[in-house]
Write a protein that binds this DNA or RNA. Structure first.
Lengths: 313, 313
DNA sequence: TTGAAAGCGCTAACAT
DNA sequence: ATGTTAGCGCTTTCAA
């Protein structure tokens, strides 16, 4: 590997001068600069990033913590982040946690060690306070509402949109609603919002058996729907956390030859357009976009991304 | 930030000994090790990755070069890579190129600077020889067939499967086939294979106007199909590079109130199952899996991933 | 304008 | 078993 030393030696100038043509070219005489640059080209030199980072004490890396690589929720956010990162020259590292708190903590340590300039939590298991404490080491952005905590966030106002969606369901005459989500209300803010919206609109608690947990993909949706169809035929509407999942529900009822209930999903994926069922669009790419820009900027800021309900019949 | 020096000073042992408890604990007396570890915990110390990398001259980072973040082709490969990387503790950085050769070259430089232990090219613009030359600096894996070049690869045997698919089309009685792809035969090996398969099965060249270029998503597919429907009503079959894209084609013909041609896509996405059209599964997640394992292992190896045709009516 | 030298935090010989 | 020291490749004072 050719280093800055080689360039110095061969060009006949000192280390410091070579470093200056890289970092402060305005402080170097035109002629020497030209010579040194020529040598750099000749040797095919380019500065070692690791050394540079160590010396500077910073990187241009952003870590994106995601519990789950499969769920479209996260893919959409990542898409938005990538798009925003590209023109800035920042690198983004994907940091999967598999919903493991200890692994999240390990990533936080890497932030502490300056492996990343900032970190985006698309979701989290760790107590919020641990994140807040870690902001000393680098910028941290949450993709969920953090209230007034001292941590930047780009988040969706899910509750009003959920209410709107559930009102639509109610007004369409459905009364026996089942929900499919990944994590329960204790773990997930989204699920909490959804249950709250249900309460607000229907004026009662959702029966436990009508909240199907652990649903992450279309296959899960299919299986859960088979179960519902067999054990709870009264259900006349299924709201799932993703259009593809909702499509799985559709296929299950169809394959079982049962009357297909009303269905609704989220993210306005292709499947809801093909099957023409309503959906909730959280605008996750926009959210990723904003999350990235917060991650590379100092200070705490909270930014709301409005979601919306798309009615279809 | 607390460093190894702090740990040394406070524990009363030397730098080297502290370093040893981190890297070669077996060479340290049980008692001193215990003391030092206690201090580490107390100080909430963890080694600085950048310094460690610089000293060692390696990282545990894998860079994944992708031209395009949106196309499902790449998402599926990335999914496979992430899944394979997770248990190994390697980090993966996404490196978008936007199909720009110079940007690919820049990433290659970062490999040279040891920013990555290895690099996976899901696709490339650069001449293969440039990649081969760069293997001196780190492991490079191509996700396309590289023949006998000295560079590892995990690739799909597309040609036979394309032939099988086109034979199915022919035997189903279709004769006026249009293809939708992203890049032309000059740029893309996939497209070359596809055109070759067409030649082999139909015994003639595909008309230029029946090869629709620049198609990357469902929207593109929709637009291209509108164009086809308007300008070339003889077309009776459309084969698109992705099921969602093919679904866009379906919707276009439907929205235009025209007779819907036969359609076929790739990747066995949800949409082909919903609309029940045939597809070609390239098993891209498996491919990503293999690409990753090749990236963290020495030596050159070529690994074929069999794709298959899924007939549906 | 250029050069010399210290330091970023760590690892690994080598010496004790 | 533990300590000392010389790097890894770079940036940035500070001095010339």
């Amino acid at each position: 590997m050719t280093t800055i030393h080689d360039v110095a030696r061969i060009s006949g100038f000192s280390l410091g001068t070579v470093s200056n043509v890289i970092n402060h070219p305005e402080n170097v005489a035109r002629k020497t600069r030209a010579k040194i640059e020529a040598v750099m080209v000749e040797l095919d030199y380019s500065p070692n990033v690791m050394a540079r980072n160590l010396s500077l004490g910073t990187t241009r890396n952003i870590g994106v913590v995601l519990p789950n690589n499969r769920h479209p929720y996260f893919s959409y956010i990542v898409d938005g982040i990538m798009e925003a990162a590209f023109p800035t020259g920042y690198r983004v590292s994907l940091l999967p946690t598999n919903y493991d708190e200890d692994i999240e903590r390990r990533y936080l340590r890497e932030l502490q060690q300056k492996a990343y300039a900032g970190m985006i939590f698309t979701s989290r298991q760790l107590p919020l306070d641990e994140l807040v404490r870690a902001t000393r080491f680098g910028q941290i952005v949450s993709c969920e509402n953090v209230g007034t905590r001292a941590i930047s966030s780009a988040y969706s106002d899910r509750l009003p949109t959920y209410e709107q969606a559930l009102r639509w369901i109610k007004e369409s005459g459905y009364t026996q609603v089942a929900l499919m989500v990944q994590r329960g209300g204790e773990d997930s803010e989204t699920t909490r919002d959804l249950l709250q919206a249900y309460r607000n609109v229907f004026g009662r608690e959702l029966a436990d058996s009508r909240l199907r947990l652990g649903i992450a993909n279309r296959r899960d949706g299919y299986d859960a729907a088979c179960f519902l169809a067999a054990t709870d035929p009264a259900v006349d509407f299924v709201l799932a956390n993703g259009d593809d999942i909702a499509a799985g529900v559709y296929m299950a009822y169809k394959d079982n030859g049962q009357k297909i209930p009303g269905i609704m999903g989220t993210e306005n994926q292709l499947s809801s357009q093909l099957l023409h069922f309503p959906t909730i669009n959280h605008h996750l790419e926009t959210l990723g976009h904003i999350a990235f820009s917060l991650a590379i900027r100092e200070g705490v800021r909270h930014q709301l991304v409005k979601s919306d309900f798309i009615a279809r019949n």
